[in-house]
Design a protein around this nucleic acid. Structure first.
Lengths: 224, 224
DNA sequence: GGATTGAGTGTACAGTCGTTCACTGAAAAC
DNA sequence: GTTTTCAGTGAACGACTGTACACTCAATCC
């Protein structure tokens, strides 16, 4: 585990620093440390879980002294909630990506699963964080994820309502369908994260088949 | 948080103890302490997650001195794996219960969801443990749960194969269906655990509708 | 009845934890 | 050019951590 040492204050004297480092405002510098703390926490949490982190090792990994933590966050909880918000923003851009596939697309399911897969691959740490802390997290973090995920399912329900076959479904039924899809896709995300990279195609193929099966039932649904 | 004090050695002198306590063999006594450790860990983990536990607070909760822990488990990991096995046994008895509903039952889905709901209610700590550590857990614990859950889905696939409509499905497709059902039911279990007790009916009703929708698609499935 | 076993005890040690406090020194404000 | 601000420092605290060791004493064995 290498420390990052964001600002090099404790490092060996660097003769080039004046020539190399762009002039940096105080706010930029502060923001850089904040990011280093967030990145350190995200990285460590995706290996060991957020509950297993200590403030001290986060600051060590970020190359900063423990007490500096409090210049940026009031508590670990606050840092955790910040990470949730960040990760959810990532997740939301994914959904938006899937939504924006051209309407006449021959195979919307395939395109959506493909979007999910690529997004998970390129934001592994955010998805690790969400998936792990959704259930495993303690207190504020888990609660925040739960709320945000419910909101997300709500948005998905609105999206679904625009499909012809679903036009006359009740709001309740649409929420049920959205929930089912979200839980299936979260499970898929976890499988993608845990699998060796070669197994991606297999997993996405199965995810497609799951969605296909679900939508096969849709035309025959009668609300009770 | 009250300590349990399994054996009262450190407690106030108990004049009745000779008269009350049944004669107890050494093995019984050891087993009792072991159980106390497991129960303490399970209870604490369902509040705060297994990663957040310390050996010392487990032994304190069990009413035993820290070093006594090593008479029963080599490490926290070993205790964790034991809890996984125990919880999975609970889960398996649930599945068996659902499987044994009379074949001609008018509404098999309803009966199965009811079984799940009651089982979750009466084994809350085991389900908390499984659901939390499935994703959140570290190392040996998470891995063990993953393997066991895959085995379970395999068993469910075999069960499903006995239904008329599924008789000619490929093994692959049966596994896909079983996986979909398991992930939907795990999500339901979490909702049941998190919800205030009054919301049980609402949650089980939605779980039923999810399963119903899935099975609506079954007759129209064509393997590709 | 005497020797043996082993679950549970109590003390001790070296680490790590979160948090406090007074401080430094360069960027920002005047 | 002087003053103010504040991100980051470093020592120190009391509490808690996992584990080593020598112990006690009742159930078990011969």
């Amino acid at each position: 585990m290498n420390t990052v040492d964001v600002n090099g204050v404790t490092g060996p004297p660097d003769v080039c620093s004046k020539a190399m480092t762009a002039p940096e405002t105080r706010n930029e510098r502060k923001e850089r440390t904040r990011r280093a703390l967030l990145d350190a926490a995200l990285g460590l949490a995706s290996e060991r879980g957020f509950a297993g982190l200590s403030l001290r090792e986060i600051t060590k990994q970020a190359g900063v002294v423990p007490t500096a933590f409090y210049r940026h966050f009031e508590s670990m909880d606050e840092l955790g909630v910040t990470l949730v918000e960040e990760s959810m923003r990532t997740l939301r851009t994914m959904i938006r990506g899937a939504r924006n596939t051209p309407d006449g697309s021959a195979d919307l399911i395939r395109a959506s699963v493909r979007t999910l897969s690529e997004h998970v691959r390129s934001h592994e740490e955010h998805y690790w964080f969400l998936v792990r802390e959704r259930y495993g997290g303690t207190g504020a973090v888990r609660q925040t994820i739960g709320v945000e995920l419910k909101l997300l399912a709500g948005e998905l329900a609105v999206d679904l309502a625009r499909f012809d076959r679903l036009r006359d479904w009740s709001t309740e039924d649409l929420h049920m369908l959205a929930d089912l899809i979200v839980s299936a896709m979260l499970a898929t995300a976890l499988e993608l994260l845990e699998a060796r990279p070669g197994a991606t195609a297999e997993i996405t193929a199965e995810a497609e088949r799951k969605l296909r099966l679900i939508f096969l039932g849709v035309p025959h649904w009668r609300s009770r």
